[in-house]
Amino acid sequence: MILQNLYNKVIGFFRQTDAEQQESTKDTACNRLRVVLMQDRTNLTPELMERMRREMVELLSKYVEMDKDALELNLEQDGEQVALMLSIPVIRAKDEEEIKAALAKEDEEKAKSEEASEAEEDINDDDNEKDEEDSEKYEDDEESEDGDDIEEDDESEDAEEDFKESKKDTEDK
């Protein structure tokens, strides 16, 4: 017994120094917790976040040409404040005429749907509300158009995978 204890201690002693080089289980715990608490606090499921991301791509591509698959939308916590962080790798700014064309096309579609039946008008109202929300977020994204956005992408992709994984887990249960 004493020998076995001794052996474990010696091994444990050297392992401890090895472990410091890898990502510690503590960091894993903190990161997993942050993601899951964000979901708990906001009621935004991974599906909803993905939908929000897609809608954001659709909206913003009217104004800028961007790497659509790389657009990342994440919830982050800064003290007590929960922030919606949007990072968009911009390929190039669209020129005035392109933007005008895109907007004109949209107006045309709107006009068409307004002519349609009452039921459809209701849906249109919803769309308008969404546009308002989106425009707020657009302001956020102007702030975050720094160079380091792209670096974050890998991490946040991982986070998204985690979202999906954790969702699967709960479904299994």
């Binding site: 401890q16 472990a19 510690s24 289980t25 503590k26 608490l37 916590q77």
Partner: peptide
């Protein structure tokens, strides 16, 4: 365990729960 980075520290928990 906290020193060995195997357990969340006081600061970690306080920050996460604010």
């Amino acid at each position: 365990m906290v020193n060995a980075n195997d357990m969340m520290s006081v600061d970690d928990v306080v920050e996460i729960l604010s």
